[in-house]
Amino acid sequence: MKIVVCVKHVPDTAEADVVITPDKKGIKKEGLAFGINEWDEYALEEAILTKEKYGGEVVAITIGGKDSEDTLRRCLAKGADRAVRVEDPALEGSDAYALAKALGAVIKKEMPDYDIIFTGTQAGDDGFAQVGQTLAETLGIPHAALVTKVEIQDGKAKIHRELEGGLEEVLEIQLPAVLAVQTGINEPRYVSIMGIRKAKKKELKVLNLSDVGLSPDEVGEKGSLLKLEELYVPPVEKMAEILTGAPEETAARLASILDEKGLIPK
């Protein structure tokens, strides 16, 4: 099996103070911890599991700056065979559509005989949930989003897709296909010392646009269909009453509120 996995290096903003830059087009990166997109961690694991089961090769691909090599090295340490990073100033301002075109071009160049392409369902930073399915369309192959189970059967895959409320649907999909995976599909392995050592010997290639046969007009703002006008702080319509003080005080206050409301069983 020739397996591609698309991974994105993203900031962890769950606990961080997110500050919008003065041009309103991005957020301040200082002080943020970056790492592999949560969904892509599961996509990577699925790619490696697939290779372990059926043999073959896994190539991890990212479009991003030099710092995203951390994420690629993580992929190599966990079991990807090689990694490719594409960086080009012309990619600046690319929307999901332009990114998908760029990913498609890299894949055609680096693994044209792919059997399966794994992506995450969404990136935690932009939350588009769009790139994988768009990539499939640009490559002219089928896709499935929110994939929670994959069983490969010659030339096809039997997959589960997550619907709402815990319901799933089972589908048969022809390969090659793009499978955009959902979290929880597997149990991502930890990075081992041995893996890190092996990763050092693996290839991490850096390409620019012309290397993958794209012109600057096909990506970036010119090649995009959507344009970010501005970021802004969400208006707060309602805000909790915040209890302040040391933990003993806030806990005491909360306990008495719960008591007043009859929420403490006696």
């Binding site: 903003t13 997110v18 919008i20 935690g124 932009d126 959507l226 970010l228 006008e229 802004y232 969400p234």
Partner: peptide, 11 residues
């Protein structure tokens, strides 16, 4: 974007 911490206008 960013898990609901930021809103964005797209044209």
């Amino acid at each position: 974007m960013y898990g609901g911490k930021v809103n964005a206008r797209f044209s």
